Simulated scan of single mutants.
Amino acid sequence: MAIRVANVHKAFGSKKVLNGISLELACGKLLVVLGSSGSGKSVFLKHLNGLLQPDAGEVEVLGEKVSGRPEAELIPLRRKVSYIFQQGALFDSLTVGENVAFPLLEHTSLSRAEIRDKVAHLLTRVGLGGTENLMPSELSGGMRKRVALARGLALDPQVILYDEPTAGLDPLTGEAITELIRDVAGETCATSVVVTHDLLVAKSLGGTLAYLSQGVFSFLGSIEEAAKESGELARFLRAGGLYVGA
């Protein structure tokens, strides 16, 4: 089992965000987490690599306990779990090549030449070959997200967590990023969790869909099964332009 979340609760002050959320995801699978703005999607995602700790409940990733562990003990696990932040979280003072090389310099014993070759390969893989010397300020939003993905793949992660990967992008760029996520999932066999509010992304990616509402997953299944639901999920799907059947 790649991910196991059991009865996780999380509140910020008096605001309850996660209210006993539970989920299991097998290795190599792709999960799309849908929900309205403020429903706790990103909060859930941040529990999977220990960026947030639950108030109650347990989180396990790749058979290792995440919840309740000190920060220092999470470092080895995070080398296997890549988190792709919504805005890319690139280092603005480093070039594109240096950003992608950063985890390789920090966590491997590869030579400078080997790192340079791997960076070139990763950038080519995400469609940005030859951009090593550009600065993040010279990149479009879609390019920044591609660089972030290249950096996230540098350590050959077993789990990849995507936080709103198409947010703020035009439809064509968003479609290209979605195709890239799907290709990476197929090529690497990594377990992927994609948080989004974009139904076109969810439909394109396939996999298992989880709908987060009132702090729990009120639905877990395929997009085709979701289209047959009623209530809040049906309204959400209709508002996003997805036909809801009887």
Score class of each variant (00 low, 15 high):
Glu132Cys: 02
Asn133Tyr: 10
Met135Tyr: 11
Val195Pro: 03
Ile177Ser: 14
Met135Glu: 11
Glu187Met: 03
Pro165Lys: 06
Leu134Gly: 01
Gly130Lys: 13
Ser204Val: 00
Leu205Met: 08
Asp156Phe: 12
Leu212His: 08
Asp163Val: 07
Leu155Cys: 09
Ala176Arg: 01
Thr188Lys: 11
Ala190Trp: 06
Ser213Asp: 12
Gly130Cys: 13
Arg151Lys: 10
Gly215Pro: 11
Gly127His: 08
Ile177Trp: 05
Leu220Thr: 03
Ala185Glu: 04
Val159Glu: 00
Leu153Arg: 13
Val147Gln: 09
Gly142Tyr: 14
Glu179Val: 02
Ala150Asp: 06
Lys203His: 11
Glu132Ala: 08
Asp163Asn: 01
Val147Glu: 05
Pro136Val: 04
Gly221Tyr: 14
Ala202Pro: 00
Leu169Gly: 00
Ser192Gln: 13
Glu179Ser: 13
Ile160Cys: 13
Ser140Glu: 08
Ser218Gln: 13
Leu199Thr: 08
Asp183Phe: 04
Ala190Ser: 07
Gly152Glu: 02
Thr196Ile: 03
Thr124Lys: 14
Leu200Cys: 03
Gly221Phe: 10
Asn133Thr: 07
Asp198Gln: 03
Thr208Trp: 04
Leu212Thr: 11
Gln214His: 14
Arg146Pro: 05
Gln214Arg: 06
Gly207Arg: 01
Gly207Pro: 04
Glu138Ile: 08
Leu153Gly: 09
Arg151His: 07
Val194Trp: 10
Asp156Trp: 07
Ser140Lys: 15
Arg144Pro: 03
Tyr211Asp: 11
Val195Asp: 01
Gly186Ile: 06
Gly152Pro: 13
Val126Met: 15
Ile181Ser: 06
Ala167His: 10
Leu199Asn: 06
Leu209Trp: 07
Tyr162Asn: 13
Pro171His: 14
Ala150Thr: 00
Glu179Pro: 00
Lys145Ala: 12
Ile160Gln: 00
Leu220Val: 14
Leu134Asn: 11
Gly141Lys: 14
Leu212Cys: 09
Val195Gly: 13
Val194Met: 03
Ala202Phe: 02
Glu175Thr: 07
His197Val: 08
Thr178Pro: 11
Gly141Ile: 10
Phe219Thr: 12
Leu169Pro: 01
Val195Met: 06
Val195Gln: 07
Val126Gly: 13
Gly168Trp: 10
Val194Lys: 14
Ala154Arg: 03
Thr188His: 08
Gly152Ile: 15
Val147Ser: 09
Ser213Glu: 15
Asn133Met: 00
Met143Asn: 09
Val126Arg: 14
Leu205Phe: 06
Leu161Lys: 15
Val147Gly: 09
Ser192Met: 00
Thr208Asn: 06
Ile177His: 04
Ala185Asp: 00
Leu205Glu: 05
Val201Asp: 05
Gly206Phe: 11
Gly142Asp: 10
Thr124Met: 04
Ser137Cys: 01
Lys203Asp: 12
Ala148Cys: 09
Gly168Lys: 02
Ala210Leu: 06
Glu179His: 15
Ser213Arg: 15
Ser204Thr: 12
